[in-house]
Amino acid sequence: MPILELQGVTKTFGGLTAVNELSFEVQKGDILGLIGPNGAGKTTVFNLITRHLNCTGGKVIFQGHDITNVRMDKIISFGIARTFQGSRIFRNLTVLEAMLTACYSKRKTGLILDLLNSARAKNEMQQHTEHAIEILKFIGLEERKNDQAGNLPYAHQSLVGIGMALVAEPQLLLLDEPIAGMNPQETLETMELIRKINGRGITVLLVEHNMTAVMGVCNRIVVMNYGEKIVEGTPGEIMEHPAVIDAYLGSGFDARAS
């Protein structure tokens, strides 16, 4: 059974169709790449899955649950976490505080018990802190835990975004251009990190423009253009596919000549 299934998902903004009858499946344990030229509707698909936007039509099924009409803040407790383009993080908090804020959905103690400083709340706080530190070690930012998140170098901010998503312990992680703005070394490290995240049993859905990274890390790829899926397959198949070359380089271009 696929972990995530999009069935004929459509999104229109007025007269503009951003996503048109899109259907694809993500299998558990996949690293699925979602690629396409600028404006193809990749980020819109993310926003539709995590309910930042309402679908105009179609269905999103996550682990057998129809999440098409679930409220945005409930998505994380289903087990879907995401990062945003341009590393959208809590910039004025320290890295650790940002991670603890992201723990919110794991909280089991009520707000009142927490306010009253109950032993259970304290205990939970301790667990969350330990877990956050563990994740920071995992992404290699433990030493930066007391730094203000917005003051970190760009590549590290992107990692904080990933860390915040991981600390919520998702089953499916959506990464929106995690590599944008990174140098080649950082790119390699992040690719390795994505593989390690996958190794923890987390299914990854990746939007990325860096083709080397996408081809290197994904086991399957969905190519979109003008809001529609044009091809789906393994990286090898995608690279050779005429429709993909068409979408990226324009028709009439001979791939072998380049």
Binding site: T50, H52, M72, D73, K74, I75, I76, S77, A81, R82, F84, R88, I89, F90, R91, N92, L93, T101, A102, Y104, S105, M164, A168
Partner: peptide, 11 residues
């Protein structure tokens, strides 16, 4: 800090 981001994390 960021309402949308807060919502993403269940707040």
């Amino acid at each position: 800090e960021d309402e949308v981001l807060a919502g993403t994390f269940g707040i």
